[in-house]
Design a protein around this nucleic acid. Structure first.
Lengths: 142, 142, 142, 142
DNA sequence: GTGGTCTAGACCACG
DNA sequence: GTGGTCTAGACCACG
């Protein structure tokens, strides 16, 4: 199962975005280590049963963002550059995403308690999902 | 005072969606009251410097969702608020929105506590906004 | 066999509405199955000799109502059936439709018995149509 | 209260259509007799708080259909011509309206029993409404 | 090739 | 003057 990537084709999140997110997450948690090589575009595309262009695009975007780097003729690797976002940028993005959730929830007539509960539950689910496919590491201890 | 709608054409959020969000927001906070008339399609289009069709589409969508209603030949009005979605659908939509926040937050390496805190704060801010512009009523008591 | 959609441009029912009705019908009777792909916007537009935007609008509306779903770059598909509307909203919509029939029938000087009889007969016809094109299943037993 | 006409401005049925329907009904039930004069356009418009053009349009359409007739300079009267629809036309229209209700109801997941019940109830309501504003007549006995 | 969004402009129904 | 529908055509994102 190598990297444990998976995509849901019916989702409204574009496939290439699902891939970039999973790679980012794998790098962030150490499942993919600095300098490690990523699967060739065609191999990953085949194993996910998707178009190679889509994988290529995901890699491309992460190369642009400095998460990956391409060594010509040899493949794509996890880049040494790490800190992707400045702190202010992290907070700005979180704030935006939080506001969107609040708006939606209020339109749908939920209470803040209900949202908090679902958030905790959802986080928990993602957590255990991530742990399941990760090798033991400092990150998973927290 | 006008309704203070504004759009940023460069955003990746479609213009018509920016409009529906602002109208929803205005209705939720009481800035637009039940029965109140919205600006004519052409007028709003002109003031936002966009095509009337785009405004019409935003209105149309909110009419379908029961937020607005069209009175033929006379204009578009805020309709009496009613629960349009089944509980299962409400939860489905909340779940989607929550997952998006969780994913984003985890990519940005926040803890669940940090997210919960920001959520509470954001909700609080929206709450007091809504109360501030509503006339005193039973609703604000609860 | 194609889906046999057809529109009459002279009707007072808007074209996009004629399309949504026919798709709903096809889904309800099982002629279109869950997960099945709909004809591409451009193809359907061409075969009906109408503008692609009009087809797109019909698809769009059914996507919002949860009947169809769009998979980006790949097309539009019949989505898993789910109850989108709250009970109050379901009843509100049924009530509207019923009032329209009653008004029409009374203008035409029919008795309630006559209407009830025709209703039963019409329902029956739709029922057997739906069963006829469905694969045998628990549903058809009830 | 003269003819007891009433319109609901928020309805999705156009106002002129609401008027034509009520006049047709009044003629059909004998509340308006052959040869009887209708209220002047301006008077009716004023009493319903609507635009005179709208009333004029309703009268116009009924004149075209032979229900009313205009005697120039003296006003608009209930015409002697009666039979508005051939029997085949009556049935065709009823069938259409019935099918529409059935489709809507089935999409909303109602059973035929539920629809029948609501139909009976709705009819009943219209009946007593009509009786309330009608003078006793053969029609109201049935 | 697939749908999604937007503009420009026309025509219509309703009031 | 109000919104509703439709066409024609462009450009974009995704695969």
């Amino acid at each position: 199962m190598s990297l444990g990537f998976s995509i849901s084709p019916a989702s409204d999140v574009p496939i290439f975005r699902q891939i970039t997110q999973q790679i980012q997450r794998a790098v962030a948690t150490g499942r993919l280590e600095v300098g490690e090589q990523l699967p060739p575009v065609r191999a990953l595309a085949e194993s996910l049963v998707i178009n190679p262009n889509t994988v290529a695009r995901a890699y491309q975007e992460l190369i642009r963002d400095g998460v990956l780097e391409s060594r010509s003729g040899r493949g794509v690797f996890v880049s040494k550059r790490r800190q992707v976002f400045a702190n202010s940028e992290r907070i700005r993005r979180l704030r935006l995403a939080t506001e969107q959730l609040c708006h939606e929830a209020r339109l749908l007539d939920f209470t803040v308690k209900e949202v908090q509960a679902l958030l905790a539950e959802t986080w928990q689910a993602l957590e255990s999902q991530a742990e399941g496919s990760e090798p033991p590491s400092k990150k998973t201890q927290k």
